[in-house]
Design a binder for these strands. Sequence first.
DNA 1: ATTAGCACTCAACGAGATAGAGTGCTAACA
DNA 2: TGTTAGCACTCTATCTCGTTGAGTGCTAAT
Lengths: 350, 350
Amino acid sequence: MLDERKLKILYAIINSYILSAEPIGSRTITKQYDLGISSATVRNEMSDLEDLGYLNKPHSSAGRVPSDKAYRLYVDQLLKMIKPKIDYDRKEEIKKALLKEAREIDQLLQNSAKILSAITSYTALAVSPKMMGARIKLIQLVPIDEFQVLLTIVSDTGVVKNSIFRLDIGVYEDQINTISNMLNHKLKGLPIDKVNDDLANEIMMEIYEYKNVIDEIIPIISKSLEDVQDVDIYADGITKILDLPEYKDLEKAKTFISFIEDKDTIIELLLNNSLTQDIEISIGSENIYDPIKDCSLITANYRLGDRVVGKVGVIGPTRMDYYNVIKNLYLVSLNISEIIDMLLGRRDSI
Amino acid sequence: MLDERKLKILYAIINSYILSAEPIGSRTITKQYDLGISSATVRNEMSDLEDLGYLNKPHSSAGRVPSDKAYRLYVDQLLKMIKPKIDYDRKEEIKKALLKEAREIDQLLQNSAKILSAITSYTALAVSPKMMGARIKLIQLVPIDEFQVLLTIVSDTGVVKNSIFRLDIGVYEDQINTISNMLNHKLKGLPIDKVNDDLANEIMMEIYEYKNVIDEIIPIISKSLEDVQDVDIYADGITKILDLPEYKDLEKAKTFISFIEDKDTIIELLLNNSLTQDIEISIGSENIYDPIKDCSLITANYRLGDRVVGKVGVIGPTRMDYYNVIKNLYLVSLNISEIIDMLLGRRDSI
DNA sequence: ATTAGCACTCAACGAGATAGAGTGCTAACA
DNA sequence: TGTTAGCACTCTATCTCGTTGAGTGCTAAT
């Protein structure tokens, strides 16, 4: 569709604009890139590119700025280039950083966001493994003293949830232990979202003698199981955007930051798009949410075994350094998958 | 030292400035406060107050701005007023908000920061209970499968720490349980910071047959005990300062935000000052750290029993609404103490 | 001791004027 | 026919400079 020269010029403009954040003029192109043509010719081509929708002008006597359509072209090209050739040295480097002080999954994801944000200087996001289809690996009650009990739930996706709660009626250690064993026996291996009140009642029938205690415990367990299913979100480098010229307008910066700090929306944002592609990119107006209509969001899946369980992402201005972001985000996501696999063990032993 | 009229004028200036953030002129005072004197008289008094160090002029033809010394006077007066009369209705209101979805201490503190930030519209901080002197209430190993073990440590300050780790050599459930019982028996009730390698060796002697396993486990427990002692910090409303006129300068805002996001420094900031006062206030230049030399930090202790174990705080411009902040911060801290007490139980049962 | 009156100060604001980067068109050229 | 030099035109950003207005400090009158 675009002949080679137009493509070269377009890429030159995109690359320059990513660096400078300022509209690019025809002379800038001829000076910085040796295309063997004069600025007048470039001007003609730029005019054509504008007609084709690849370039915009902030105002009539300014240089050109790439459109979302241009970034889309550019990025699709990049993706083809980056994915096949993995930089294994870099990958190991990142892995080392990810593992630093991270022996739990939450720390791993926190680290991922931190590292990605540091590498890219944009805002980085990570969501904890989704519980869809997760199973209970361990559920346990431990008496702490006469009135206090510790409830621990572990899922096969590596999420651990604790609650210390008080019972209004005193209990004996033996009681708690009996109930704990019973629970573990009954619930181990069950999908978390399948545990409901019917099951609770069933269990109660079997050890009717502890009815009082169990009546108190059931709602707490339900609540904890809900908590386990909550997706956590980790963000880092939110304030990095204050360094970008496009956010020198305080109002704009505040809108962006507020948006990112709204966890519910971010979870939707990350989990709504499909899980089929390894790397997904929404550029500018492709985004649904107003506050980020001039941002690009790049996400990558991570897996547990062969199931996609979560995502990491980077969000920045449409004028972002796509090459750097895509490359490193991809490596981070590959590493997360590997590390989770390592942490949780390959075999699906329950 | 200051006669009543000077004091009245000074307070009028402080109150106006807290509201407007703009230098206060003599006419503003006479118009807004009925002091029965003319602006010329006010001017003379203001000149005196400036000589005494209570007021500053941004430039020669501007109004006056309160100095740190003035805020100090004002705040010391406020403290005397606020502390004796607790607004119990308000306190219950806050308590309800604090307890919303907070059955664990970390959620409680997260909530505290959130609520304080919402009430005051400044940045709010909270640190988790210090482990100084905390004791082990429960330590436990649970086999998850042949290679994976869950380590749970609970302190008497209510902090729970989990680690799932892999053993390189396979173990039997019985082994883990034996070790777990032994550990709990030996370590329960001990101050966390007193558990060291000697103790570990002692334990190892007693169940020498599991030496291989224990060799693997000891360093993991050490690490976890260290983690338990780490103080967590909760911050909320960091970006609130973007709404303040004093931070319309982006560079200043960035410096502040970077400072707040540096957890280590913030922990130092909060835990360095003494634990004797219920409420502590550093105004502007009284702060040690450069980036907050034009901020005021107000902190309040919370207790477990009669021991001060942590702090909550609010940080904002020296021109902050001290009355509102002090009052609500105090109520929040009282509530936190009560809630922690409730969650952990009064009796020091181990 | 207080206050009216007035000259003086200084930041903030707005109106031109100017510079400079960039475009688009035209006409000449290979 | 595609390319390019040249030039008029456009538009923003920046700087200067006068004006405005809030505020002070001094003086003289009450």
